[in-house]
């Protein structure tokens, strides 16, 4: 792989005298990102304390944001941080804190997917993913616009304006719903 291709990544690469090490460095950084994502996801799924699960989720999101940055779209990466880590995780943690103390809770009975059925589902999903990954021709797309905000904005309001409007409808419904719930609680 040509190290010059990675010249946008600040910090590690690009110097010609380091070209021999650049590939290794890129690989190590990529592995760190993937490890953060996967380990965070595992913690989020398997932690007994809910707050730890949120911490794992945050780590997972940060790893995904790093991969976005690595894939040359800093805007998406920053948005991932801002929305998922900064808003979603905090709101989840907030909800956990306002709920009943988890020390008093007993784990419920295992669901229908917890036994061999779950294993089969997971195995199928894994094989599907591996098959997909092996059979896809990964094309390197040319760098278009450095993930420029302006392009994203124009696309959002022209090509994808329908999606944009639908999302705003969903948000409106969510706001009205929360207002209704809040109102209901207050009258009691």
């Amino acid at each position: 792989m040509n190290p010059a291709e990675w010249s946008w990544l600040p910090g590690v690469l690009t110097a010609n005298d380091l070209s021999g090490y650049a590939d290794t460095a890129v690989g190590i950084i990529f592995l760190i990102m993937v490890a953060t994502t996967v380990i965070g996801g595992i913690i989020a799924c398997s932690a007994e304390r809910l707050v730890r699960a949120v911490a794992g989720l945050a780590a997972c999101f940060i790893g995904v944001a790093a991969i976005y940055y690595y894939l040359n779209s800093p805007f998406v990466a920053i948005m991932q941080m801002l929305i998922y880590v900064g808003a979603v995780c905090i709101v989840i943690a907030f909800a956990i804190m306002l709920a009943t103390p988890e020390d008093n809770k007993k784990p419920g009975p295992p669901g229908p997917l917890s036994g061999p059925l779950g294993l089969i589902t997971a195995a199928l999903a894994t094989f599907g993913m591996i098959g997909l990954a092996l059979n896809t021709m990964f094309k390197v797309h040319p760098k278009i616009n450095m993930g420029a905000v302006k392009t994203i904005g124009v696309e959002l309001l022209t090509t994808h304006s329908m999606v944009f409007e639908l999302i705003s409808m969903v948000l409106l419904i969510a706001i009205i719903g929360s207002l209704v719930i809040g109102r209901h609680g207050r009258s009691k």
Partner: peptide, 26 residues
């Protein structure tokens, strides 16, 4: 490192501070 989305980056990292306080308190 001058970023084209510098303002957003500042706020993205500032939002992590809330998580720190949450984890500390909890």
């Amino acid at each position: 490192h001058s970023m084209n989305i510098g303002v957003l980056m500042l706020f993205a990292f500032a939002s992590l501070g809330g998580l720190a306080i949450l984890f500390a308190g909890w």
